[in-house]
Simulated assay, not measured.
Amino acid sequence: MASIDIHKARVRDALPPRRDPYFGAPLAPGLYLGFRRLDEGGTWIARQREDRRQHFQSLGPVHLKSYEDAATEARTWGKRVLAGTESQEVRTVIDACKAYVADRRREKGEAAAHDAHMRLSRSVYTHALGRLRLDKLRAADLRQWRSDLVMADASKNRMMGSLVAALNFAVQERYVDPGKAMEWQAIKRFHVTSRRDVYLTRDQRRALIGALPAELQPLMTCLALLPLRPSAAAHLTVGHLDARTGLLKIGKDKAHAGRVIPLSADALVLLSAQAKNKTLAEHLFAHADGTAFVRQEWGAAIREARGPLGLPAKTCAYSFRHSGITDLLTAGVDSLTVARIAGTSLVQIERHYGHLLQRHGAQALATLSLG
Score class of each variant (00 low, 15 high):
I261V: 15
K278C: 07
S264P: 10
K254H: 00
G258S: 15
D253H: 02
A273S: 13
S272V: 02
K278E: 04
I261E: 06
S272T: 15
L268K: 13
L271Y: 01
A255R: 03
S272Q: 10
P262Q: 11
K252Y: 01
Q274F: 05
L280S: 12
V260T: 13
K276Y: 05
K276H: 11
T279L: 13
Q274I: 07
A275Q: 02
A265R: 15
V269Q: 08
N277L: 11
K254R: 04
V269F: 02
A265K: 15
K278W: 03
L270K: 08
N277K: 15
L271M: 12
L280I: 11
K278R: 14
E282Q: 13
K252N: 00
D266N: 14
A267L: 14
S264T: 15
H256M: 10
R259Y: 06
A255C: 05
A265V: 15
K254F: 00
L268I: 04
H256L: 08
A273F: 02
H256E: 12
R259T: 03
L263C: 08
L270Q: 07
A273G: 14
L280A: 14
I261Q: 07
H256G: 01
A255Y: 03
A255G: 04
L270I: 08
K254A: 01
A281D: 13
D253S: 08
P262K: 12
V269K: 09
A257N: 09
K276I: 01
N277W: 11
L263N: 09
K276A: 11
A273T: 10
L268D: 04
Q274E: 13
E282H: 04
G258K: 12
S272C: 04
A273V: 04
V269E: 10
Q274K: 10
L271F: 03
P262G: 06
D253L: 02
L280R: 14
A281E: 13
A273M: 06
Q274R: 13
K252E: 02
L280Q: 13
A257C: 10
L263E: 09
L268N: 07
G258L: 12
G258W: 14
D266Q: 14
A265W: 13
L270T: 05
A267I: 09
A267S: 15
A275W: 00
A273E: 12
L268H: 09
L263W: 11
K278I: 04
D266V: 06
A281S: 14
S264M: 10
V269A: 11
D266W: 09
V260I: 14
L271E: 00
R259S: 04
P262H: 12
